[in-house]
Design a protein around this nucleic acid. Structure first.
Lengths: 341, 341
DNA sequence: TCATAAAATGTAATCGATTGCTCAATATTA
DNA sequence: TAATATTGAGCAATCGATTACATTTTATGA
């Protein structure tokens, strides 16, 4: 049970004070080169490691940032985390990951807990349930940078990195129109969330710009599951005038739809085109690869981390920064008609 | 820029000492009920939040655990994290996530960093490159619990939660044999890693138990990519006596193989059977769902977390615990011949 | 009513690193 | 050579919470 070596041990060893040791280790110019060398050597010899907790207490900076998101094991989110981690680790920050399971009260607890743990910043993608902002304004009140990614709340002082969902939906829909589709349906998830509102808006905009009337029957809600996609497709196809394309706000929805469409004998992409959203890895592995709107989660993570670093560095005023990333449409077989190739 | 309230603020407010406040907050029996009530009320009124960093410094317990793994955004690993997080969060622990990118020196840095950060434990899946154990024995020397998951190193004092890869491979191979396959190939990744050695061994065992000779030509190495799977399948199929089944140590390898096999006109599962390993989500989404060995990552994460908690609680002797989880074979279309249904 | 037990609170050190201020030892200048 | 400047290092407080140990207050019993 070895005691950790502290600067006091080094000090005793060299018959100097801990203050000198501390300064030497931090390369303070007031310390002579000789002493520094001695201290360094002794530190190495005694296997000294700085105690970040003690530093944190003294400086008020824990060098930890909290990341709050609905679920960790979703490709999108885990890739965002990867981006955050890759950007922040080299700067000496550790990343604390937490998941809300889309529960508002869990989110509140987590944020409180992170504040207690003295994190230097919080990067968050709010849960679907979250409707109160109190726990979020608390963060800013404590002078802790708050950066939203993907799902944001409008809070004065909070920054954000989001995807231009409107543009993504617009691109997807426009692409379907370019393929000759005119009866384009839209599968959505939860119109209470801004991102889905924006996707719907982008879809509508593309339609109207191309002189296609918006048909409310073509908009259908679903859960983010394959079976839901199948059911939704079934409903759409039983309409008096069934659609000839689907733009789904989720890849699983698109996948479910495709499965149902094949089942009823539709040929994709010739008879019917499908575009998803998120560019989940599986979309490209399929035998019928699915077109999808890429959300560049890695870039989103890195950008959120960079925004955080800017906030931390500029200790003057808290600047609010809102970055909107442009989505890319990955066109694959599910929506690329042969005669257009 | 509000100052955080401390126990001293509460003490001043009530004209008592910080010691009393501390005891009251911790429900110490030596403090009268009246005082406790007063302190609690004042704490709430002043919006007091305990400073975990100060506590950590005093107690030597940071209530943080470090998780080290190759990549965060792999379904297997992110699901393990989820399991860890779900088990540890309710116990008041925060989880610090780090990724090694399979680099040994990054792993060494990370472990050092986590120790500096005074984590209460380290859960790790070692990188492929890692060959030295020094950084790991360091952890145990500092009396910090070390729990391996999935990929382990044999270190005295370290615990582990792993999958019975041997059994998984055995089950997969046996299943292929039961389907009538006799010329079964095996795609592997890196035989320097124990898990792949075990999968190979399980494969061999199943063959030998069923009187099938082991053919070294049928074992082929590849990277964990689809293209590698395609290439490997190509090589296998150009053997003088090509196989009639593949047990791949990775799902992407299986997927690549399937794509190539279809290309050359093989009918799966009638002509050829394929089983993968990991049960990645995409395996079940495919039009031809792929059989795969499930590694139960969620359970693995939870179990690793539980082992950690046991270690922490039993402050007597450091007990080494090695849990081996049994894999389940998910049989899907890629290996289920019609006449066997 | 007074001694003694029991209960409630206070004192002060501690965890490890940092830093403003002070002081001592050289170095520089006139 | 005396006076001043420069450099190097020590002293002691601080961050916020915890906790042996001491002290005060109240309760109990004879």
């Amino acid at each position: 049970m070895k005691k950790k070596t502290t600067i006091y041990d080094i000090a005793k060893e060299l018959n100097i004070t801990a203050a000198t040791v501390s300064r030497a280790l931090n390369d303070n110019p007031r310390i002579s080169a000789d002493t520094k060398k001695l201290v360094m050597a002794t530190a190495k010899r005694l296997n000294y490691k700085q105690n970040r907790v003690a530093q944190a207490l003294k400086s008020g900076k824990s060098k930890n940032v909290g990341v709050v998101l609905p679920y960790i094991n979703r490709n999108f989110f885990s890739t965002v985390i990867r981006g955050i981690e890759e950007e922040l680790n080299p700067k000496g920050y550790n990343v604390i990951i937490t998941q809300t399971h889309e529960k508002a009260n869990k989110e509140i607890d987590i944020v409180q807990n992170l504040l207690n743990a003295q994190v230097d910043g919080i990067l968050i993608s709010v849960s679907r349930q979250t409707n109160s902002n109190d726990h979020l304004t608390q963060v800013l009140k404590k002078n802790v940078p708050l950066i939203f990614f993907d799902r944001k709340k409008d809070i004065k002082g909070g920054s954000s990195v989001t995807l231009d969902d409107f543009q993504g939906a617009y691109k997807a829909t426009q692409h379907l129109i370019a393929q000759g589709c005119t009866k384009i349906a839209h599968m959505t998830i939860d119109l209470a969330l801004l991102i889905y509102q924006n996707r719907l808006a982008g879809y509508k905009q593309a339609l109207s710009e191309h002189g296609i009337d918006f048909n409310p029957d073509y908009v259908i809600g679903l859960q983010s599951e394959i079976v839901a996609g199948i059911d939704a497709a079934k409903k759409l196809m039983s309409l008096p005038e069934p659609p000839d394309a689907i733009f789904s706000a989720t890849d699983l929805g698109a996948l479910g739809a495709i499965q149902y469409l094949k089942e009823i004998g539709k040929t994709i992409p010739d008879d019917f085109c499908v575009v998803g959203f998120s560019n989940e890895p599986f979309t490209q592995f399929m035998e019928l690869p699915i077109s999808s709107v890429d959300q560049s989660p890695l870039l989103m993570g890195k950008t959120a981390a960079k925004v955080f670093l800017e906030q931390i560095d500029s200790d003057d005023v808290k600047i609010e920064k809102n970055v909107v990333l442009s989505p890319t449409l990955e066109i694959r077989k599910s929506s690329l008609k042969r005669d257009n190739q």
